[in-house]
Amino acid sequence: MTHPTYLWPPPSVASLPVVGSSARYPVNRIFCVGRNYQAHAIEMGMKGVDKEASRPFYFTKTPAALVDSGATIPYPPGTADFHHEMELVVALGAPGFRVAEADAHRLIHGYAAGLDMTRRDLQAIAREAGRPWDLAKDFENAAVCSAILPAGDLGVLDSGAITLAVNGVTRQSGDVSQLIWNIGEIIADLSQFYHLQAGDLIYTGTPEGVGAVGPGDRITGHIDRVGDVELTIGPAE
């Protein structure tokens, strides 16, 4: 078998540690659900989300944006309003296309605690201009994630406290039960548009209380029964 020759070494596979295993979870794609907690939608200037009249909406981050929990990252370029968003992450372990909500559990490999880091000022500019959110959401170190906890008996997780603190002071406090679209609904809906694959991550949305962080700040997040995520913000490059 002939192997291709590249002009330079290709990037390594993005991956995450797995609780109880020496093998790492290879990341394929990163999907994020926008405005999936009512109170967060309201704090972002929306009137709230009418679930009966709408469906989930998504944005993506490239695997190159992924960083392990516990890292120190530089304050990113191009922003003066760098925000934390604490989220439950669903890690898929099987493929699925046009999946019924009742079958969503078959795709879930496990869960993690994640941070959807956001250049909020750039997001506001893009939103006002009707432009994509890429500069605000998809950049280096913008997807922080803990080790993957295999789902085991958790099944389709439908509750669990989710909190975040900056320098020991609580900023975000909610519960997974407050998701507008629950995990089964998200997987079923997303699979109408994509052939979901093992290695896909889904960041499910953030509770209210998002806010700015700066150099020297330490972020700690927790999701009951799932785990913890940590991040330190270093100086700007």
Rank of each mutant, 00 (worst) to 15 (best):
M1S: 14
M1A: 13
P4I: 02
P4N: 05
W8K: 11
P10T: 08
P11S: 10
L16E: 11
L16Q: 05
P17V: 08
V19L: 14
V19F: 10
G20I: 06
G20C: 07
R24T: 12
C32M: 14
Y37L: 00
Y37W: 02
I42A: 05
E43V: 06
G48D: 07
E52Y: 06
T62A: 14
P63I: 06
P63R: 08
L66S: 09
S69V: 05
S69Q: 08
A71N: 14
T72Y: 13
P74L: 08
Y75V: 03
P76D: 12
P77H: 14
H83S: 02
L88S: 01
A91Q: 09
P95Q: 15
G96C: 12
E101S: 05
A102F: 01
H105E: 14
R106F: 02
L107T: 06
G114M: 11
L115P: 08
L115C: 07
D116P: 00
L122R: 15
Q123G: 04
R127P: 11
A129Y: 08
G130I: 04
G130H: 13
L135Q: 15
D138H: 01
F139Y: 13
L149P: 07
L154E: 13
L154G: 09
G155P: 09
D158W: 01
G160E: 06
I162S: 04
L164T: 01
V169S: 13
T170M: 15
R171C: 13
G174V: 11
V176W: 00
V176R: 03
I180Y: 01
I183T: 13
D189N: 15
L190I: 08
S191V: 01
S191L: 02
S191I: 02
Q192R: 15
F193W: 14
Q197L: 11
G199W: 06
T204K: 02
G209H: 09
G209K: 08
G214Q: 15
P215S: 15
G221I: 02
R225E: 14
V226A: 08
P235K: 07
A236Y: 03
E237G: 13
